[in-house]
Amino acid sequence: MSIVSWVVAVLLFLGVFFFAIGAIGILRFPDFYSRLHAAGKCDALASTLALVAIALFNVRDFDWTLFQSWDNLRVSLKILLIILFVYVATPAATHAITKAAFIVGIEPWEKRKRNR
């Protein structure tokens, strides 16, 4: 395996790791709002890592004389476009859900209530 393959594998498994952290986070956190923390942030970073790894692997042996290589570059740019979209969309969706929960009136979990 070449150096690029090692980099790709490490990035990919880091992405999968952060996805797993996000999934465990939304299972373990005590209330709704803190679950959103785990969901929103870990997903953004994990998507970035995994998709960058895939985009890098797609252009691993780039040869500027071949049309196929340029097509691969186009597909990689499309994958980077997904990352851009995730960065715009994830906070917006998180914000919408949080605002809905706030208006509907879900109570935040607080430390003081538990200790009383």
Binding site: G22, R35, A39, L51, I106
Partner: peptide, 21 residues
């Protein structure tokens, strides 16, 4: 609550996006 389910579906969707690629 329903909103919890929406958060879960959102996470599943983000994972599925990577899985599809």
């Amino acid at each position: 609550t329903v909103l919890d389910r929406i958060v879960g579906v959102n996470v599943v969707g983000a994972q599925t996006t990577v899985l599809l690629v």
